[in-house]
């Protein structure tokens, strides 16, 4: 019953948000183009290098392209549906809009998230998905039902990881004033996840696996499909997603309890 109610409300919010973003057609298209161009640029970089060398550390172009495509899909999905987490520090906490949310008979986090829809995310999703399909074909990997199911579960987990890390950082705004900058920085670390983890220094690998687990949004799930090993870590991805979400969500609830509005 509760789920159905929330689902219905969510659809209402969504259709309204889509309408408002379609109002400015040029901006809508420019936003999608912006993300599309950015990701194409990243791919050209890889392509230009592989044009000169067939393999790097045992990886060929299509394998690297697959990881790249895989990485930007969850980042695109979280931008599309969960982007309002970025507004928590400024709009909701510092400017006190959270008060308005707290008076509603809804889960406050749900309300905040449902209130935002960022069509730019489409750029990443479209490009990432095309790239994954293209590389899969070129590498002669199979499109079996199980593989597709695995892909869906991993992409969902990746999206949850993106969201949870952002939520954790945003929650810090209950105590600290200028948190957006740090949030941007931590988010930027996801750049590392676009390329095979093995090329980085050991310390970077450990941080991206066990501290800020962006490696689970792309590299670990992808290597199973590419048949490049580390099975255990590949299948650990959903567990990592659930754990980071629980940590971030409890932290958020803890912060919410201590929240004192900026209003008088």
């Amino acid at each position: 019953m509760v789920v159905r109610k929330y689902f219905k409300i969510y659809l209402r919010f969504l259709s309204r948000n889509i309408q408002s973003s379609m109002e400015y057609k040029v901006d809508f298209l420019l936003g999608i183009l912006a993300n599309l161009f950015q990701s194409i640029l990243g791919l050209i970089f890889i392509w230009a290098i592989f044009n000169r060398i067939p393999t790097i550390k045992g990886w060929n172009f299509h394998e690297v392209a697959f990881v790249y495509g895989f990485a930007i899909i969850p980042s695109g999905i979280s931008e599309l549906f969960l982007n309002n987490v970025w507004l928590i520090p400024t709009v909701y906490v510092n400017q006190g809009n959270l008060d308005r949310i707290l008076t509603k008979p809804l889960n406050p986090l749900f309300h905040i998230i449902a209130d935002g829809f960022e069509p730019h995310g489409f750029g990443f999703i479209i490009f990432g998905a095309s790239l994954c399909v293209y590389s899969t074909l070129k590498l002669g990997l199979s499109f079996s039902f199980l593989n597709i199911l695995y892909f869906m579960v991993m992409i969902t987990s990746g999206t949850i990881i993106y969201f949870s890390i952002n939520l954790f950082m945003a929650t810090l705004s209950f105590w600290l004033m200028d948190i957006v900058s740090s949030m941007v920085l931590v988010h930027h670390l996801s750049e590392f996840a676009k390329y095979p983890l093995i090329i980085y220094h050991k310390a970077v690998q450990i941080i991206l696996t066990w501290v800020i687990p962006y490696a689970f949004t792309s590299f670990f799930p992808a290597i199973f499909l590419l048949k490049k090993g580390a099975l255990m870590l590949s299948f650990l991805t959903p567990a990592v997603a659930i754990s980071v979400f629980l940590i971030a969500y409890s932290f958020w609830n803890f912060g919410l309890k201590r929240y004192q509005s900026s209003g008088s």
Binding site: Y24, V26, A34, F37
Partner: peptide
């Protein structure tokens, strides 16, 4: 001609 310079900025930057 556009409202949001964000998209413009990133298209330009790319």
């Amino acid at each position: 001609w556009t409202l949001n310079y964000w998209g413009l900025y990133y298209v330009k930057k790319s």
